[in-house]
Each structure stands twice: as C-alpha cells, then as structure tokens.
C-alpha cells in the first residue's frame, strides 16, 4: 500500500513538473536568445515575431481542438486562401459584408467537414485532404487564379495597428486563445471534446454524442481559419488564391510541440500557444544570428521529433 502511495505521489509530481516543462523551455530559449543576440529583446523584433506567428497561431488554436478529438484538419490552409479571396473580391462593395461572408464561408466549410466525417466514417486525414483540394479550387475559381487587388487601406492597416505596445494582431490572437481555453475548460462542450478524444466508446456510454461534438469542433476550426484568414489578408494586402499553402502543417507543428497528443484526449491551448512561440523564437533567433534561412526547416523538423520523442518517453 505504501508502495502504491509513493508511486502515486511520484506520478503526480512528475506530471506537475511536466506542466512546467514548456514554460521553462520557452524561458530558457528566450534567455539564450537574449544572451546571444541583444536585438532579440527589442520591441520592434518582438513585434515581428508576434505578427509573423499570428495567422498560424489562430489556426493552431482550432487545430488543437481538432487534435484533441483525435482527428486532424488539413483543409485550414486552403480556407485561409478562400477567406483572403472572398475579402478582396467583396471588399470594394462593402468591407463589412466581405468580412462576414468570408468567416461564414469557412465556418460552413468546417461544418461540412464535420458532417461528412461523422456521416461517412472516413479517416479525417483522407477527408480533409479531399476538402483541402476542393476549397483551394473554390478560391482559385473565384479569383480566376490571379491575385485579387482591392483590399482597402483601412483593412490592411489592421496589421500595423498597435494596442499600446502590442500589435492588434497579437491581442486578437490572445483573445482567441483565451476564449478557446475558457470554452475547453469551463463548458460542457469543452469537456465533451476531451471525453470524445479520450475514448469515444466510454463517451458514448456516458451519453455524449461524438457526432455533435466533432461537427462543432470542425465548425469552430473553420471559424478560426476564417479569422486567421482575415489577418492573413490584411498582412499580404491581397486576395491570394494560392496563399496559405502548408499553413495546416505549421498549425499542427505548434500544437504538437505544445504537447497535444496525436491520438486525442490530451492537449491544452495554452501549451499550443507556448509551442507557437517556441517555434517563432527559434526561427527568429536563427534569422538574427545570420544563419541561412534554409536551416530553419531543418531545425523545426528536429524540434518536432525531439518534442514528441521526449513526450512519449515521459509518459511511459
């Protein structure tokens, strides 16, 4: 009995330490960065890190929810492109309409993903690989394959708008993360998301409908992809039908480095947030140090593998 007790204490201690691992890692990385490259801590540079991470960041927030249910959404990159094309096309008529239409469109795409997933029992990788292509084509057809000019100045100014000393984009991202965190932690839907990802059979026996939960999660992922797309459009100042390529993998990277399990049931958005900044900081410091930009993908690849391997080792 004592043995069990001691094991239990050790386990909880280990998991508490595990909770501190990411913040500590980020702190260490920041400290090292500040030490080797003084420009790192300047306001201008940090602003760039934040603006550069915002689009992926908001996508990563939605992706975390999808991963927690044990699924994946590969279509969010295409959804970003769709948003930017819709905004650029409709903005000359009415900016408000354009923004609303874009977000509604991606939310509907997400909803469709969710409904198809639960109706057909297709693996989400395959399903969203399909919708990724379809949504990309929608963007290309609307824009006739060309960049769409027509994003008004007032909208592109969003990127450079500052709230105090923090870019508006950063504030928006933090708000999205806070809302998602709140949803996941304090609402019944949020807890059902974890329950479904943890064991869908147990969740079913507890009266939770995996169908409804998954549809809701994909719709939210679509909604967040729309919001991310708005900031993306503001940042690139155009409607880019071939934009946002590979953004889904960037979002997955942040979530995975933040400790989200690929098998579902585990993952926290605040950790994804930290994961996002670990990636952003590593990229930034390599830049500042004058390392070839082509080393970045190599470093990120190694970072992903190390993070996941360490995590699997720990949980064993």
């Amino acid at each position: 009995m004592f043995q069990v007790q001691r094991d239990l204490e050790r386990k909880t201690a280990a998991s508490r330490l595990g909770n501190l691992f990411l913040p500590l890692a980020l702190a260490v990385i920041i400290a090292v960065c500040a030490f080797i490259s003084p420009p790192f801590l300047t306001q201008e540079n940090l602003k760039n890190v934040i603006i550069g991470s915002a689009t992926f960041g908001i996508l990563a927030c939605g992706m975390t929810m999808v991963l927690v249910t044990g699924e994946v959404d590969l279509s969010v990159g295409s959804q970003v492109a769709l948003t930017s094309v819709i905004v650029a096309t409709l903005a000359p008529k009415s900016l408000a309409l354009a923004v609303v239409a874009a977000v509604v469109a991606t939310t509907l795409v997400g909803l469709a993903n969710g409904i198809l997933l639960t109706k057909t029992a297709m693996p989400s990788f395959v399903l969203t690989l399909g919708t990724m292509g379809i949504v990309r084509s929608m963007a290309l057809v609307i824009a006739d394959g060309q960049p769409v000019y027509g994003v008004p100045q007032s909208f592109t100014a969003l990127t450079s708008t500052m709230v105090g000393k923090i870019p508006l984009v950063g504030v928006a991202m933090v708000v999205m993360y806070a809302l998602t965190w709140f949803l996941l932690r304090y609402t019944s839907l949020g807890r059902s998301i974890y329950a479904v990802g943890s064991s869908s059979e147990s969740a079913r026996l507890s009266g939770i409908s995996a169908r409804q939960v998954k549809i809701a999660v994909y719709a939210m992922s679509g909604f967040l992809a729309g919001i991310a797309g708005l900031f993306y459009t503001s940042y690139v100042t155009l409607g880019l039908p071939d934009g946002g390529v590979d953004y889904e993998t960037q979002a997955i990277t942040a979530a995975i480095i933040g400790g989200t399990s690929f098998f579902g049931g585990e993952g926290e958005v605040h950790n994804t947030f930290l994961g996002l900044f670990i990636v952003g900081t590593v990229k930034n410091i390599l830049n500042l140090m004058g390392v070839s930009p082509f080393v970045q993908p190599v470093a990120i690849g190694i970072l992903i593998i190390t993070a996941v391997v360490l995590r699997t080792r720990k949980s064993e």
């Binding site: 297709m122 399903l127 919708t131 290309l140 057809v141």
Partner: peptide, 21 residues
C-alpha cells in the same frame, strides 16, 4: 479552367473512399 483540378481530385478522393467503405 485548370483551377478546378485540385477540387476534382479532392472530390474523387471523397467519392472513391466512401464507395470503398
């Protein structure tokens, strides 16, 4: 219009996989 190529491939994926299942 070559732009719908990706979409058509996507649709074929969904179609054939559903049929297989």
């Amino acid at each position: 219009n070559p732009y719908i190529q990706q979409g058509i491939i996507g649709a074929i994926i969904l179609l054939t996989v559903t049929m297989n299942q």
